[in-house]
Design a protein around this nucleic acid. Sequence first.
DNA 1: CTACCCTATCAACACTATGTCGAGGAGATC
DNA 2: GATCTCCTCGACATAGTGTTGATAGGGTAG
Lengths: 225, 225
Amino acid sequence: MNRRHPAPGLTAGAAPERGRRVRRPSGDDRESAILATAERLLAERPVADISIDDLARGAGISRPTFYFYFESKEAVVLALLDRVAAEARALRGRALEEVGEDPAAIWRRGVASIVDTFRSHRALMLAVGQLAAESDEVRRVWGDIIEGFVEDTVLAIESERRRGAALPGPDARLLAVALNWMNERVLHAAMSGQHPSVHENDALDVLLTVWSRAVYGDDSLGSGR
Amino acid sequence: MNRRHPAPGLTAGAAPERGRRVRRPSGDDRESAILATAERLLAERPVADISIDDLARGAGISRPTFYFYFESKEAVVLALLDRVAAEARALRGRALEEVGEDPAAIWRRGVASIVDTFRSHRALMLAVGQLAAESDEVRRVWGDIIEGFVEDTVLAIESERRRGAALPGPDARLLAVALNWMNERVLHAAMSGQHPSVHENDALDVLLTVWSRAVYGDDSLGSGR
DNA sequence: CTACCCTATCAACACTATGTCGAGGAGATC
DNA sequence: GATCTCCTCGACATAGTGTTGATAGGGTAG
C-alpha cells in the first residue's frame, strides 16, 4: 500500500513540493508517459471520452499500474494544470514587471496574460472546465487559481481608488470576483465554440472594455474600439 | 420501437409543442412521476449521484420502462428546464411590461428576473451547469436560453446608444455576450458556494453595477452602493 | 551469496451503471 | 375473439471503475 499520489493541487494551493525524490528512472518515465498521453488525447477528444484504460495503454502499462501513479483521471489533469498554472504565474509576473508603473498597461497585461494562457492550453482548459463540474477537487484547485487573480485584482482596484482614478462603489472584492468569473466563462465559451460566444480574437478587447468601464467608468484602458 | 421522447429542447429553441396528446392516463402519470422524482432527488444531491435506476425506482417503475419515457437522464433535466425556461420568460415579460418605458427600470428588472429564476430553481440550475459540461444537447439548449437574453440585451444597448445615453464602443453583441455569461457564471458560483464567489444576496448589486458601467459608464442603474 | 525488502507490475475479480432485446399483459377497436 | 397499440419488465450485453493477491527483479544488509 506504499502509494505515491502526490496529492494534486496542494501544489497549487500551498507551497509546491518541488524536488523530485530519488527513485529509479522507470517510475518518473511512466509518470511522464501518462502525462504525455493525457496531453495527446486531450487534444483529440473531450476528457469524458478518455478512459483510464486509454491513459494506461497509451503509456504502455496496464490499468492497475496506472493506479500506482495516479489516483484517478482527475489527478492526471490536475498534474497538468499545476504545471500550466506555474507557467502562467511566471508569465504574468514577467509581463507585469516589464511594464513598470503605468496602471493602464498593468491592467492590459494582466488580462492579456490570462487570455494567452487559455489560448495556448485550450485542451487543458476545456478539460478542467468539464471536470470542475464533476470533481470537488478540481473545482477547488481551479477556484484557488481564480482566487489568485481575484486577489491581484482587488489590490489593483483599491490602489486605483486611493489614487482617485477608479470609481468608488461596491466592495472591490465583489467587483473582482464578478470580473474574473466573466473572463473565465467568456474564454471557455470562446475556446469551446459554445453558442453564444465571442470569437477568440475579440475576447481580449471586450473583456478589457468591460473591465475598464467597471473600474474607471470609461475606456481608459484603451481598445474601447 | 414506437417511442415518444419529445426531443427535449426543441421546445425551448423553437415553438413549444404544447397540447398533450390524448393518451391513457398512466402514461402522463409516469412521466410526471419521473419528473417529480428528479426534482426531489436534485434537491438532495448532485445530478452525477443520481442514477437512472434511482429515477425509475422513485417513480415506481423499472429501468427499461424509464427508457420508454425518456431517452436519458439529460432528457429529464431538459424537460424540467423547459418548464422553468417558459416560466422565466413569462416572469421576465411581465416584469418588463409592468415597468413601462423607464430604461433604468427595464435593465434592473431584466437582470433581476434572471437572478430570481436562478434563486428559485437552484437545484435545477446547478444540475444544468453540471450536465452542460458533459452533454452537447444540454449545452445547446442552455446556450439557446442565454442567446435569448443576449438578443434582448443587444436590442436594449443599441436603443440606448441611439438615444445617446449609452457609451458607444464595441459591437453591442460582444458586450451582451460577455455580460450575460458573467451573470451565468457568477450566479452559478454563488448558488453552489464555489470558491471564490459572491454571496447570493450581493449578486444582483454587483452584476447590476457592472452592467451599468459597461453600458453607460456610470451607476445610472442605481445600486452603485 | 543468500535472504530479504521494496518498488513496480498485471491477471483476475467484484462492482456499478448504461442501454437493449424480446417476451409478454391489458385496454381499445374492429 | 382477433388484433393492434401502448406499456412493462426480466435478462442480457457492454463498458467502465477500483481492488486484491501473486510475482518479478533490483538493491542491500548480513
